[in-house]
């Protein structure tokens, strides 16, 4: 509801631009004939109708009322190491007092995100598992009564391309060295 006036303002400013026929920011010359005037009247009427219709749609959209409240929560984001979000993946949240039974289950959205508000009366390590078709990860979130303990925040961070290349290069060099070692022994 709060953004309705903002939209209205945006549309009204659009009308102000339409009143400037040359499309520039500098002031234009006075209008010369009535044809131009009638054209502006049509545009003005269309813009006014858009404001009214736009406002009506915003206020009465399918009769749904929505609101929000400022509650501190946790947002999980999950994706594959290719950068693709794990959209539609299943999320299981475990509270610290019972790590065997799920405290909450849900689905990741299209961008691989899932939000929830933990029960702050249960301080300790909350575990969140994300899973999709045999792929998945588990993260552990330290929660205190005052909120999340940022100093101990754990996240399954991905390596950069350079780090991966260096790691892969080291291991590959080990395999090449092994091959060279046994080749030399065979020659001897």
């Amino acid at each position: 509801m709060s953004d309705t006036p903002v939209k209205g303002i945006a549309l009204l400013s659009g009308i102000k631009q339409l009143k400037n026929p040359c499309g520039r920011t500098v002031p234009c010359r006075p209008l010369e004939n009535e044809n131009h005037l009638s054209m502006y009247r049509i545009f003005f009427s269309l813009a006014l109708a858009a404001i009214i219709l736009g406002g009506a749609v915003d206020i009465h959209a399918h009769g749904v009322a929505a609101g929000y409240s400022n509650v501190p929560g946790i947002e999980i984001s999950a994706g594959y190491d290719t950068g693709q979000p794990m959209s539609g993946g299943q999320v299981v949240v475990y509270a610290p007092d019972n790590p065997a039974e799920p405290w909450m289950t849900g689905l990741l959205d299209e961008e691989g995100r899932f939000g929830f508000v933990p029960d702050y009366s249960l301080p300790g390590t909350w575990s969140v598992q994300v899973r999709q078709a045999g792929h998945g990860a588990m993260i552990h979130i330290p929660v205190q009564e005052q909120g999340i303990d940022d100093s101990r925040t754990d996240s399954a961070s991905a390596f950069t391309g350079l780090q991966l290349a260096v790691m892969a290069g080291c291991v590959v060099w080990g395999f090449i060295g092994t091959a060279m070692f046994f080749t030399r022994r065979l020659k001897n």
Partner: peptide, 11 residues
Amino acid sequence: ENIPKASLLTA
């Protein structure tokens, strides 16, 4: 005999 080949293919 095949250890060098196996090592390279493991890489």
